[in-house]
Computed example of a mutant assay.
Amino acid sequence: MGPQERAPCAATHTPQSKPIVYDWNDLKVLLAVARHGSTTAAAKALGVNQSTVQRRLLALERCFKRPLVQRHPTGSRLTTLGEQLVPLAEGVEQAALALAHEVERQARDVRGVVRVTCPEPIVHKLAASSVLERFHARYPHLKIEFVMSDRYLDLNQGEVDVALRSGDTEDAALVGRKIGDSLWAIYASAAYLARRGWPERAEDFSQHDWVGLDESLGQHRAALWLKQVAPGAHIVARNNSVLGLAYSAKAGLGLAPLPTPLGDAEPELVRVLGPIPELTRIWRVLTTPELRRTPRVAAFFDFMVEEMQALRPIITG
């Protein structure tokens, strides 16, 4: 046990007094028995089993060194001391509830701006969902400012506060949580496939036209993968965003690697091949250790983790 820890019912010795240190959870059990008349009913009200109720009552009685409850075949009856403690325990209960309400109020009163970077398609899908609506309902004074970019902005240099990012995270100084998986596949328009045919395997890629990423995103995993599997691929158009890839593919210019939530949502595009295992990565919510401790960033970060199930259709498809 560490120097800051204290066992339940330990006495704090001072020259004036030796106050008893008790567990508030044990007082909850005493109140439940007083209100419901038996350990069985108290256990049901508290959502625990009866043995837990009995164990906590015994711990409280050992703490106070006097019996608090008398057990009878028809139920439980408080002793004189137990009855005298009930109004005091109710005062502790009200104080604990007031503390919880104040913490919740202050959490809702978080103010300021959180600058969040993520690809443009994710912002569109978030806006079309109810995720942001729930966030603003919980934090009405906290504003989200999206910085849409397919390149990795530098959190350590203060370009943004939080990143919703897929791919490899090389900066070990960042803290993050996984919120889903990033899946990619190959897409083309129906018009392109009618004109050039359907590639059935990676070996066919070099015989097709492609739309790719420009030099500003030359290290993107999709760009590196295409160079590896089809080094002689004919690139007919280059874009500085993943959304640009989708537009070019819809125009019938060629094949394009795209995230499955984006490609599958476009009725004009056909999934040709995939998901491609080599392009699968993790989606994370990322920030710096310093910003993680600030109320405004912590509110957004924790909310995104909490909304993981709602985010997965948006980021994974």
Results as ranks from 00 to 15, higher is better:
residue 14 T to W: 05
residue 15 P to I: 02
residue 18 K to M: 08
residue 25 N to A: 14
residue 30 L to F: 07
residue 33 V to D: 06
residue 37 G to A: 11
residue 42 A to Q: 08
residue 44 K to Y: 07
residue 49 N to L: 02
residue 51 S to P: 00
residue 51 S to Y: 04
residue 52 T to Y: 08
residue 55 R to N: 15
residue 61 E to T: 09
residue 62 R to V: 05
residue 68 L to T: 07
residue 73 P to H: 07
residue 76 S to K: 01
residue 79 T to S: 03
residue 84 Q to E: 14
residue 94 Q to N: 06
residue 95 A to M: 11
residue 105 R to F: 02
residue 113 V to R: 13
residue 117 T to A: 14
residue 120 E to A: 14
residue 122 I to W: 13
residue 128 A to F: 06
residue 131 V to S: 01
residue 133 E to L: 06
residue 136 H to V: 12
residue 137 A to E: 07
residue 141 H to I: 00
residue 144 I to E: 01
residue 146 F to D: 01
residue 146 F to Y: 10
residue 150 D to K: 02
residue 151 R to K: 12
residue 154 D to A: 12
residue 155 L to M: 14
residue 178 K to V: 12
residue 184 W to S: 08
residue 188 A to G: 13
residue 191 A to T: 15
residue 196 R to W: 09
residue 208 H to N: 06
residue 210 W to D: 08
residue 211 V to L: 10
residue 212 G to N: 15
residue 216 S to G: 03
residue 217 L to N: 06
residue 217 L to T: 10
residue 223 A to H: 15
residue 227 K to C: 07
residue 227 K to P: 01
residue 227 K to D: 13
residue 231 P to Q: 12
residue 238 R to V: 03
residue 241 S to V: 06
residue 246 A to H: 09
residue 248 S to T: 05
residue 256 A to K: 03
residue 257 P to D: 07
residue 262 L to I: 10
residue 265 A to C: 11
residue 272 V to T: 09
residue 279 L to Y: 08
residue 280 T to H: 14
residue 281 R to A: 15
residue 281 R to N: 13
residue 282 I to N: 06
residue 284 R to T: 06
residue 294 T to L: 12
residue 297 V to M: 05
residue 298 A to F: 04
residue 302 D to G: 01
residue 307 E to S: 09
residue 311 L to C: 02
